[in-house]
Amino acid sequence: MAIAEPTVAPRVNLLNVEQMAQFVFDGFLEFSDLVPDELNEMVHADLLKAVGADGLEPAYRWHITDNPHGFYEESSAVREVHALPSVQGVLQSLLGPGHVGSHSAVHATRPNQMEAQKWHVDGGGRRQVRLPKVHPYSFDILTAYFPHDTPYEMGPTLVLPGSHMRSVLGNDISRYKNIVGQKRLSGPGGRIVFMHEALWHCAQTNETDQWRFMFKIRYNPRVPQRGLFDTDGWDNDEIRRFFRTNKGAHSLTGESPAVVTERANWWRYLCNADELDDPSGTGGHGDYA
């Protein structure tokens, strides 16, 4: 079974151009106001029932069962969270109609677990290392839902903003340990983070005496990801200024010039516009750089 979107997918609660531009730069968007508190509490209660002395119950370990949606099927509350119009609006904006949740997983970190997960990218890698028939601008979305408060010391997921623009294979990056700009997704309960599939991430140590939970779904698009959000103002002065003033964002080792062009072309693709015109062949980027 796969998680399909509701039969009627309203085009409401769509992302605006400022939000989508932030996604293009950072590789993720975080929302703290999409889910009512009572639903968060219900999901948290269901998650506490899913762990025992040996950790996550086997029925919910998707990689050792033949069911990639054990907890999703078990918890009506978590299904309700992901069907909320507010959540579907973001998914519609990023993935379009017909998106499918290919698998989901409970991420549970034990109390006082002092070993972190290693840096990795889910599903192997991106773009140049993917099959040639995969469109270079297509991407899956990983939702990371934190139903309860996850302060820094509880070890919420660590991400490297901007790393989605790098082509790497999944576990090669486990050599790295600490990187300037890394960010723990700490904060209050009820947050959902929508991550580009290529974003570098890993779970963190849990220095508290409480279980730390995160529920993930990987969603696949079924349409070209163009013009799916509220593109009003996509090329206005503010957006162009945003791209110009942040052109060096997340540049660690001198890759900024290469990323500027790729980012601008991806942006134009997302906005259903032609890629940058460069009749001179000199690599000019116009106002985006």
Binding site: A116, R175, K177, N178, I179, Q182, Q204, L252, T253
Partner: peptide, 26 residues
């Protein structure tokens, strides 16, 4: 410095090496 990792051969197999995300200053 923009990234750093430390692998310590003096530690035993049960000891915890540097972990991802454990430090914010190089």
């Amino acid at each position: 410095t923009v990234a750093w990792a430390f692998y310590d051969g003096t530690l035993g197999a049960e000891d915890v090496q540097m972990q991802a995300g454990s430090e914010n200053e190089p």
